[in-house]
């Protein structure tokens, strides 16, 4: 895309933008004792998308698809070989300081907390380094302590926190300067059900009430489905899908699941494919657009020994897992 064309897509409402971004890494691999071969890994290949202010988008893909690379590009930690990365209309690598004042970044496997200090000290530290005014700091700390339930761990050393507590404290620290854009890489990593629930509710709330733009990655598709309105699927460095979950379901077919409770081996059902047996039930998948209910029930009625039948939609997680599997092939 030419510079003029790229600029034309930007508006004041744009929080983040990738325009035809290509990023590759050259990896040296030993092929013999003295010989090395250079392999070019395309982390991102001509990827473009725009995040409008106030959007909540999920960024998903199989391992090695290019998710972390995208986050590093958006954070200005990496520069692309081709294309343009813009946050608030600025190049994050060139205008790092200005961009970072308005952006919060959290990588799930990393911590911004000061290890040998109480949680409170990390917040005091951030106040000075980010130059957060007193009134903003007091308000933000009050809200975050309350919403993320930090009171019990406020004076605990960061090194003594459990994984869930550390994630909550990290998230609060990321949001302390009230960023307009928040990039969260695996924020629910390792959290138990309750902590995950708290985290998701909190993210939805700040998106709804404060119009914070969020881009979140996770391997848990149920979490992403619940959190975000928009799904960006990346595979082998290419954007494979950009849209809502409903659109994704329409794209991948209206896939439904049948569970048959019966003794013996799984019989064949015309128009449906057998997936496996779970908890004594034979599970099949079929496309509702291709198989009418009449045809389906007629096919099941011909099977002897059926004790129970369950019908349902295929979980989004399964749809995406199937997509990943197809991509891998």
């Amino acid at each position: 895309m030419s510079n003029a064309a790229a600029t034309a897509t930007r508006t004041w409402d744009t929080a983040a933008e990738l325009c035809h971004v290509t990023k590759y890494f050259d990896q040296k691999r030993p092929v013999s004792l003295f010989k090395r071969e250079v392999q070019r890994i395309h982390a991102l290949d001509d990827v473009s998308f725009t995040l409008q202010k106030g959007e909540f988008a999920a960024y998903a893909g199989p391992n090695g698809a290019g998710k972390s690379t995208t986050f590093k590009l958006l954070s200005g930690m990496l520069r692309p070989q081709a294309g343009e990365v813009r946050l608030f209309g600025m190049d994050p690598a060139r205008s790092r300081i200005e961009v970072m004042r308005r952006t919060g970044v959290l990588f799930g496997n990393r911590s911004e907390l000061w290890w040998d200090h109480p949680v409170r000290a990390s917040f005091d530290w951030k106040k000075e380094v980010w130059d957060i005014p007193d009134d903003v700091y007091q308000r933000a700390v009050g809200e975050l302590r309350d919403l993320l339930d930090l009171d019990d761990i406020w004076h605990t050393f960061a090194r003594e926190l459990s994984l869930g507590q550390r994630m909550r404290a990290n998230l609060a620290l990321t949001l302390l300067h009230e960023p307009e854009l928040v990039l969260l890489d695996e924020p629910t990593l390792g959290l138990d059900v309750l902590a995950k629930r708290q985290m998701i509710d909190f993210l939805k709330r700040i998106n709804r009430e404060k119009q914070v733009t969020l881009l979140v990655t996770s391997h848990d598709m149920d979490d992403l489905t619940e959190m975000a309105d928009r799904l960006l699927l990346i595979n082998k460095g290419r954007l494979a899908f950009d849209g809502s979950y409903d659109q994704l379901v329409r794209t991948t077919g209206d896939s439904r699941i049948i569970r048959l409770l019966m003794r013996g081996d799984a019989p064949a059902i015309e128009g449906a494919s057998f997936i496996g047996t779970q908890d004594g039930r034979h599970v099949y998948r079929y496309d509702a657009a291709a198989l009418t209910p009449q045809q389906l029930f007629a096919a099941i009625a011909r099977i002897h020994g059926v004790e129970d039948v369950e019908l349902g939609r295929e979980a989004i997680e399964q749809v995406i897992a199937r997509l990943y599997e197809e991509w891998r092939r």
């Binding site: 954070s75 930690m77 300081i97 200005e98 952006t103 970044v105 990588f107 990393r110 380094v129």
Partner: peptide, 10 residues
């Protein structure tokens, strides 16, 4: 170094 690059300080 990533931790340094996300701070709004030179």
């Amino acid at each position: 170094v990533d931790h340094m690059l996300i701070q709004p300080r030179p």
